[in-house]
Nucleic acid binder design. Structure first.
Lengths: 142, 142
DNA sequence: TATTGTTATACTCTATAACTATA
DNA sequence: TATAGTTATAGAGTATAACAATA
């Protein structure tokens, strides 16, 4: 008779708890996007674009895990609101670089501020526990 | 002159690391859904439906953070594949209960197995660190 | 009157395939 | 030939508003 070896290993348990925590934040994500009249993909695109760092369309497609053809539409809508701009790359004129405008950087900062806000629950951990958690996650991510 | 008090508090740092970790799993989520020919919302719906536990459509809408009218279409497609069934509730015939079929339960189990797999990185933590991480997350979630 | 789920509508996201302009 | 981005197309997700059935 097999022993009960699948008692749920600690890595799987930690990962499952972690997934549950993130799932519980989906509402907050949608509210944040709606607060700035952004669709979720538009918000992620804006968050991936660092002000002052031009990014090729195809690189954004990779970050968003979608096809290049989708990025065209997502960027169209961000550009029509003046949040990002397209600029042909110097080294290869097929490539278009995306750059965040000043207005885009402002919205992006507000979005980031809101999304980086730790969810309820963290205040139940002591400062030392919070630091320990951060240390474990750093080691996990490398 | 103000002191540098915003050194990034540990809760925000932990939360930011945590968000980064989950974002890095988006590709895995999309691949899992695609492997079972499910759209992301269809996969989430199936994961929210516990076999043997009937759930009203409106409750699922709440869990998915979307409007009731969306659930109609999402469930239509799951039902046409024989993964879930609609059943009028006894106590209130306006309500329709969703129940996972046997075929649905099988797909759901495979999806769960794949999604619960801890991502790369966990093997860099010792078993004790993994247990500690799980304990901190349990306290965080309550 | 209020609520559950559906339908109608319009917009966005999504992948695929075909196209363009560069390389 | 190959690649970056666009366009065309079809299907799915999304919210809003109007509706039917039920409470």
């Amino acid at each position: 008779m097999a022993r009960q070896t699948t008692q749920t290993d600690p890595a799987t348990e930690a990962w499952t708890l972690l997934s549950r925590l993130m799932m519980s934040r989906k509402g907050h994500m949608l509210e944040t996007a709606a607060a700035f009249e952004l669709s979720p993909p538009q918000m992620w695109a804006l968050r991936h674009l660092e002000p002052g760092v031009p990014l090729p369309m195809s690189a954004l497609a990779g970050l968003l895990h979608c096809d290049n053809s989708n990025v065209t539409g997502i960027v169209d809508r961000l550009e029509s609101r003046g949040l990002v701009e397209r600029r042909p790359a110097d080294h290869d004129r097929r490539v278009k670089h995306l750059v965040v405008t000043e207005a885009g950087a402002e919205v992006r900062a507000l979005v980031d501020e809101r999304m980086n806000q730790p969810p309820p629950g963290f205040e139940r951990l002591t400062a030392q526990e919070q630091r320990h958690l951060a240390a474990l996650l750093r080691k996990l991510i490398e």
